[in-house]
Each structure stands twice: as C-alpha cells, then as structure tokens.
Amino acid sequence: MSDFNVEDYSDVTLSPLTSDVENELCKIMYTEEYKQLMGIAFTLMKQDEFSDRAFQLTSKIIDIAPAFYTIWNYRYKILDDKVTSCRENDDARINLLNDELDWLDEVTLNNPKNYQIWSYRQSLLTNLHPSPSIKRELPILQLMIDDDSKNYHVWSYRKWCIIFFKITDFNKELEYTNSLIDSDIYNNSAWNHRMFIFKSINQSEKLDQSIINGEVDYIKGKIETVPQNISPWNYLRGFLHNFCHETTAVSDLIPFAEKFVNIEEIQNQQLPDIESSYALEFLAEAFSLDDSTKQRAVECYKGLATKYDPIRENLWNHKIELLK
C-alpha cells in the first residue's frame, strides 16, 4: 500500500473546522496540516468513503492525534468494508487483518499509554479476523512488558487473550510469570497474573494436592528471599482462600510466618526488630481465627500500631476493636 500523499485528496472539499468562536477557552493553535487532515476526514466520513486513500488518511491522523476516537471508528468501518468485499477469499482476508495487526503493533509501541489500541485490537480479533492466533499476539505483549512490566492495560489484554483463545497450556503462562517474578519479585501484576492462571486451571479441573503444595512452597521461597514484600503475602492469602481449606491452611503456616518475627517477645510487648510486618499481619489474622488465640492477635496488632507499621496505627487499632 502506498504512503499518504495529500495530493490524492485534492478533489475533496474540506469540512470547515469551527474556530474563532468568541471568548474561546483553551484555544489550541493547531497547525495547518491538522486542520487540513481533519477537514478531509470529516468530508470522507460523511460521504461513507471506504477507499484506500481514506484508510491511509486514518493512519496519518492516528499518528498525529491517537486519542481521536472517531477516527479509530472510521478506520474500523473501512476495514470491515474491505473484509466484506473479499468475503470469498480467506487468504486475502487473513492478509488484510495481519497487515492491520502489523500496523497496530507500530502504533502501540509509539503510544504505550493509549488504551484505544487494545480495544481496537480486541474488535479486530473478535469480529474481523478469520483465524486469529495467540502466537501473533505474544511478541507485542512481550515488547510492551519489556517496556513497562507493570502496564495495567497490557496485563489485562494478556488475560483477555487467555480467555479469548481458550488457552489450556497453562504451564507456559506459569513459567512466564516465574521469569517476571525472578526479574522483579515485587511485580504485583505478575503475581496477580499467576493467581488468574491458577483460577483458570481450577475451573477446568480441580487443582490437585501436589500442585497446591508445590505452589505454597514456591510462595514460601519467594517470601524467604524478601520477607518485606506485600505481593507474595497477599498472593499467599489469596491462594489459601481460593484453593485450600482456609483456616487449616492458615494455621499450618503459623510456624513459617514466625520465622520472620520473634513472636514470643512481641507477646511480651518487648517489640524487637523483625523482618516483616506482613508476616506479623499474617500471624495476627491466623490468631484471630480461634477464640483461644485472640489475645495473641491483639498483641500482634499492637506491635504493628506502635512499631512495625505505625502509619496505619488507626487501622490496627480498628482491627483490635473488631476482635472485641
């Protein structure tokens, strides 16, 4: 496909852009080029022109103003029209859509924070592409995660893909989260993705005990590496809640959590230095589950309030109130 050339549009009457209104606020000095492109685009839209030149025009405008929603909509309609016109030819349709994905990859790399790109992508795969494949999606996902390993939209899109493509080889996804957690153990999105995967596995077949034990060991290892890290502690709590008999599993982990906390000294209100406030919080919750250990929970919360996490003093005191 040839590049954008403004001479291709010389026959188009420009739709005038309203401007120079009295007492305008926030007046943006748009360039002549911007005015011209928008003027052409609105005219073509009104005329329902779904041509190649209209398609090229949308690329050009998205380049300048990627947040301009109507243009994305226009582009989609042109593409839809092209797809319909080669209804009988699967290869042609596949090529068309793959070219579009190539183009979209470029736009994505240039606009990492724009969210329009992901919903546009979803509609291409859902409504237009004859044979979408997750293989085609992985490279861009990888590049985007390399660029920002906590990009919320990218992680959401990855999870959307797993559902959309009905992925069943979950081991690959688990390995993927492993590698990200290895490079940044604090990456909460990676931990969250892991939970999403286990929930997906559990939906197709109940998790078996050896997998559960293996995962608990995995979490323990990560906590031992960095005890003061909220992500694996939250993940542990979630994992026990979702896949285990929660109260038993939590009690079983008391000795593990006590490794990071000198619990007896805390019970005697001596407040020694400890390695992790999250371990102490875990213990407080574990002790709260049983009436006989409630007083122990109170002492843990007191420790959090006075020494280990004093910014949340009010929360910890509130927890003590709830125990009464």
Partner: peptide, 17 residues
C-alpha cells in the same frame, strides 16, 4: 495558562479539550 492560547504541541489533546 491552560485556559488561554495553547501552543500546537497540545494538538493531540484537541478532541478531548
């Protein structure tokens, strides 16, 4: 300043001004 005349680098905000 944001309510006055903005330079063209704000162009991409135009549609969501």
């Amino acid at each position: 300043f944001h309510l006055s005349l903005l330079p063209s680098r704000y162009e991409s905000y135009e549609v969501n001004k």
